[in-house]
Write a protein that binds this DNA or RNA. Structure first.
Length: 570
DNA sequence: GCCGTTTTCGGCCCGACTGTTTTCAGTCG
């Protein structure tokens, strides 16, 4: 099954779960579909193969019914059950679920009683005051939904990690000045370093929560208060981000930090494990059957209490980390300190805004021992790509800087366009003299999947290509990656010993962390690259490390943790 | 719809806040 079909299947199952909730079916039935969707997303096996070998039903969460449905979808490309469901409840209802404050029950009522099928129709119905008479609705609900729609339309509630982190820092600084707060930390998806953040979760410990909540909801950055309670409050910031603050007693803090860090799926699995051990787990403690609490000083002790190694927050995505922790087989995750050098940097030679020397000195000051300059190649005319003469001029400058000695070794690289036929952008006699060649797709994004795959596979067979740059070409929250068969590309990279880039720009974070573990198991090495276009861009390395950690990578999986001899040609 | 060392039925993780109720359902995390 291709990546695209797999993606479709995962969405299909999730959609069915949501439609069943709207329909009012058993919540456990819905959950079975969500579970299956989530499980398949994290599955590192080809679903088509599993079906062909009749092994699909062996997966935990797949029974007779789902086995049949998934097989039907695989064989025919559609699912009659879903088509029937859509006749009853149009697919467009699912979009309404993205409006904060509107869940499946309300969507069901709105559809059945008012025939509302889209967010636009819902907005109009609010304005016409037609929600107030519905059962379970009222004046305030209608107003809240209208506000929710504005939020939905304006921001769609999703932010880049880097933007959310910047906002969170402001809030942490503010809350940190409150004398009632004893402990304070970012939790949620932000602590797990997800590339896209829905809202910011902050946890505080205090014996006196009321003034904390008061100060929080009255802070300068607050635009609207969504909820205000003794232990939990939510606000929208002036930037439009939702922030949840949870305040617990100091003795509850480790349990709460674990709980509010999530992910939801990780916690479900963890609580399930606790329950099997006769323990009840929630944000207030870990309780034995007699109701007594198992005391812990920190998260590490909490995981230990349920028989697990400490699981770093980045790994808590229910992708097998609990099973690995139970067997003491968690990887020793890469850290920023493991990085020795910088690869993938642009300068004034192409579309960067700083000189080679400026970039190199900054990298040196950040503690790196080498930097590899990789400007754009000649076909990238929009980015000022280097003609052969420019390349020779740049090599000369690099030689001079290295000779003079500025405290960091500079390597000569290039980010070569992968042309439409898969060839690189210079003749062999130039390519062979670079220390390192990154090959990236920058044009003709719209090629059909088969052609794009062939183009990239061709490039991966070029002996001069070292690193395959930003493999999908995605721009988070704005552009989907191009169509290609990632499975085939990864196999080709593994076969040819080609490195795959983890582009550390917070706008890209490409390759996606969800695929890293699989790549690692295939024997692929990765390069964490800032794709820096100015001095600040070099700071993006930390985002790439975050993604690598989410993908279970260790320092031995990442080439810029290795000695230069194994990376560069010269 | 799934699952099983309490197995083929009766469970399925847990709690805060809000609004619409008069004891609770819905939403969210």
């Amino acid at each position: 099954m291709s990546e695209v079909d797999k993606r479709d299947l995962i969405i299909l199952l999730k959609n069915i779960g949501e439609l069943l909730e709207i329909k009012g079916e058993s919540p456990f039935k819905s959950r079975a579909y969500y579970n299956a969707s989530n499980m398949l997303e994290n599955l590192n096996e080809d679903i088509g193969e599993l079906i062909d070998e009749d092994r699909l039903k062996d997966l935990k969460g797949i029974g007779d019914a789902l086995n049949k449905k998934i097989t039907e979808f695989y064989k025919t490309g559609r699912l009659q059950y879903y088509e029937d469901l859509k006749q009853e409840f149009p697919e467009s209802l699912l979009d309404i679920l993205n409006v904060p404050g509107v869940g499946p029950k309300k969507v069901g009522i709105l559809y059945k009683q008012l025939g509302i099928k889209t967010v636009g129709e819902l907005e109009y119905a609010c304005i016409e005051n037609r929600l107030v008479e519905l059962p379970g609705f009222g004046e305030k609900t209608q107003k809240k939904i209208l506000e929710g729609i504005n939020q939905y339309k304006k921001y769609q509630g999703r932010y880049l990690y880097s933007d959310a982190y910047g906002q969170a820092e402001v809030i942490i600084r503010y809350l940190g000045s409150l004398k009632q707060i004893e402990k304070l930390e970012i939790a949620g998806s932000l602590r797990r370093k997800k590339e896209i953040i829905g809202d910011i979760d902050i946890l505080a410990a205090s014996t006196d929560p009321i003034p904390v909540m008061d100060a929080f909801t009255k802070a300068e950055f607050v635009r609207d208060i969504i909820a205000l309670g003794d232990t939990k409050s939510s606000i929208y910031t002036d930037m439009g981000m939702q922030v949840d603050l949870r305040v617990v007693k100091p003795e509850e803090y480790p349990y709460a930090l674990q709980h509010f860090t999530g992910s939801k799926e990780h916690n479900v699995s963890l609580r399930h494990r606790a329950k099997e051990m006769g323990l009840k787990m929630n944000e207030y403690g870990l309780f034995k059957e007699d109701g007594s609490n198992v005391p812990v000083a920190d998260e590490g002790e909490l995981y230990k209490a349920v028989g697990l190694e400490f699981i770093p927050p980045e790994m808590r995505e229910d992708m097998g980390e609990i099973e690995a922790a139970a067997e003491d087989k968690l990887p020793k995750l890469i850290t920023e300190e493991d990085l020795k050098g910088i690869i993938h940097v642009h300068t004034v030679y192409s579309d960067g805004s700083c000189t080679i020397e400026d970039m190199a000195c900054r990298a040196r000051d950040l503690g790196y021992s080498y930097i590899c300059i990789t400007d754009h190649s000649q076909s990238a005319f929009y980015a000022g790509g280097l003609k052969p003469d420019d390349v020779f001029r740049q090599w000369k400058e690099i030689d001079e800087l290295n000779k003079r000695g500025i405290g960091i070794k500079i390597f000569k690289g290039i980010e070569s366009d992968i042309l439409t036929d898969g060839s690189l952008d210079y003749p062999e006699e130039i390519l062979k003299n670079f220390d390192l060649v990154i090959g990236s797709v920058h044009s003709n994004f719209g090629m059909p999947e088969h052609d794009m795959t062939a183009r990239i596979v061709n490039a991966l067979n070029n002996r001069y290509l070292s690193i395959f740059g930003h493999p999908t070409g995605r721009l988070l929250l704005s552009r989907e990656g191009y169509d290609m068969d990632m499975e085939e590309v990864m196999e080709e990279a593994a076969k040819n010993n080609k490195v795959i880039e983890i582009n550390a720009s917070p706008y890209r974070l490409d390759m996606d962390w969800r695929l890293l573990k699989k790549g690692k198991d295939m024997g692929i090495k990765f390069a964490i690259c800032p794709d820096a276009h100015n001095l600040q861009g070099l700071d993006d390395m930390k985002y790439g490390v975050g993604a690598a950690r989410k993908g279970w990578l260790e320092k031995d999986d990442v080439i810029n943790c290795m000695d230069v001899g194994s990376i560069f040609r010269s």
